[in-house]
Design a protein around this nucleic acid. Sequence first.
DNA 1: TATTATTTTGTAATGATTATCAATTACAGA
DNA 2: TCTGTAATTGATAATCATTACAAAATAATA
Lengths: 154, 154
Amino acid sequence: MEHRLERIKKQLHSQSYKLTPQREATVRVLLENEADHLSAEDVYLLVKEKAPEIGLATVYRTLELLSELKVVDKINFGDGVSRYDLRKEGAEHFHHHLVCTECGAVEEIEEDLLGEVEKIVEKDWKFQVKDHRLTFHGICKVCQEITVKTGTSK
Amino acid sequence: MEHRLERIKKQLHSQSYKLTPQREATVRVLLENEADHLSAEDVYLLVKEKAPEIGLATVYRTLELLSELKVVDKINFGDGVSRYDLRKEGAEHFHHHLVCTECGAVEEIEEDLLGEVEKIVEKDWKFQVKDHRLTFHGICKVCQEITVKTGTSK
DNA sequence: TATTATTTTGTAATGATTATCAATTACAGA
DNA sequence: TCTGTAATTGATAATCATTACAAAATAATA
């Protein structure tokens, strides 16, 4: 935890940004809630518990900054709200998501599914891939079982 | 063109929706501008040329309806505006996009890149895949050449 | 200490999308 | 054809996430 915070601090300093108390509080919230896909509002409310004087605008700016530094990934599930995921240390890429169309659950996949596909894109379209976003939409394991048992489907 | 319009009309009727003049005008605009990734506002302005009395809300409602019927895909490039792509006839899935981080150009890929990957997801995560969204971010062919020639990179 | 740049805060502004509601239209049945 | 009902539309107000702004606070520099 402290270790990752240290890393992020260095990363900020290397671009002559400061790790202000507000920024630190925001990063800590992200580190403590890594499993969730927090919106800016979510982060704001959580940070406020520890640092009540922080403003919403600052949270937005901090998340934007962390996004530019590739510390977090800004993602979009199409519900009109951006969400922010801390990128795993050393991870080059965004991770993937399985979004259940029945219950809305979101599962993450860390595996590198697209190594081969990227090579194809680079070769066939002469497109130099820097990153990608991959989301699957479908029915999660839990909802499949419910459907089988009750015979219902939305 | 007329053929595809006919198809869409049937699809609407089969769910007891009507193909009103406003809806027809909207679909025609989509058919005539298939290459672009139009926002609701774009569509509105184009429809207005032919049917000046149409309201913005109607365009939004129509696009939402077409999206539910999977006639169009509602996509999001992270710029705060939803865009609407007509789905190719008979296409099961969304197509993919190559978004250039230098110039913002968006290229489409129709190829099925994820057939194998989907099988892996279904098998390893017991997730029943219905659709997917795949976007690559990177540097397009044109911008690569500019970078080589001028030695600049943003 | 004086100066300058960075950051923060609270709030106003923006802009896309959605909700509301009265008016219009389409259509099934008498 | 007339009538009643449901679907649809258009204008506009409301909503909500995000961004812009200006003044105050903070930190860095000389």
